[in-house]
């Protein structure tokens, strides 16, 4: 088993357990539970095999759905995030990111943050629209997206700063 694969399996299981056991219990102000598990999708290695990537993202989402009784909201949000990630990568790292053998976790923190913000907005908007599932509550959906999104980005950047490998100078 090579180290990239092992790393990703550990990340998948670790983030899932962290999400279910710790982050879903925060209930800050009664409803804010940051969804940091999407770091797995953000940091997934860049390659051309988008099929397996989308399947894995979908599986991660379905697993969380079973724990939170959200039907397929996590799955839909994760799947969409996995599908549009190449677009975000192109936006953040430029047209030629595929040539550079990019390791997302090793890139500068400002780029990483920009990628996270884009991903979190996409994911949370889809997730909360499907959870609320009511067009007359659009403002409530947006409010949830914004407040939970900010919490997710705060906690996620904390994780990124802690686990980011030090750049060799």
């Amino acid at each position: 088993m090579n180290s990239t694969l092992l790393n990703n399996v550990l990340r998948f299981v670790g983030l899932l357990i962290l999400q279910i056991f710790l982050l879903d219990q925060i209930n800050f102000l009664g409803y804010i539970n940051p969804m940091v598990y999407i770091l797995f999708i953000i940091l997934y290695p860049v390659d051309n095999n988008r099929w397996s990537f989308m399947f894995i993202a979908f599986a991660l989402g379905i697993l969380l759905d079973t724990f939170q009784n959200t039907g397929g909201a996590h799955a839909a949000a994760c799947l969409t995030l996995a599908f549009v990630r190449p677009v975000f990568l192109k936006l953040v790292y430029g047209e030629s990111y595929l040539m550079k053998n990019l390791k997302i976790i090793r890139t500068p923190i400002d780029r990483l943050l920009l990628l996270s913000v884009l991903s979190v907005i996409t994911h949370h908007l889809i997730f909360f629209s499907l959870v609320i599932f009511n067009t007359s509550q659009i403002l409530y959906t947006l409010k949830l997206t914004l407040s939970v999104g900010i919490a997710t980005i705060l906690i996620a950047s904390l994780f990124l700063i802690i686990f980011k490998p030090k750049v060799k100078s």
Binding site: M54, G61, I62, D65, G71, G72, A73, F133
Partner: peptide, 23 residues
């Protein structure tokens, strides 16, 4: 996959139907 996810979501909002994804 999106169609699968959405059908689960719609089922979960329907009180009378038994959903496949539950805790």
């Amino acid at each position: 996959l999106m169609v699968i996810a959405l059908s689960f979501t719609i089922q979960s909002h329907d009180y009378h139907r038994n959903t496949a994804i539950h805790s």
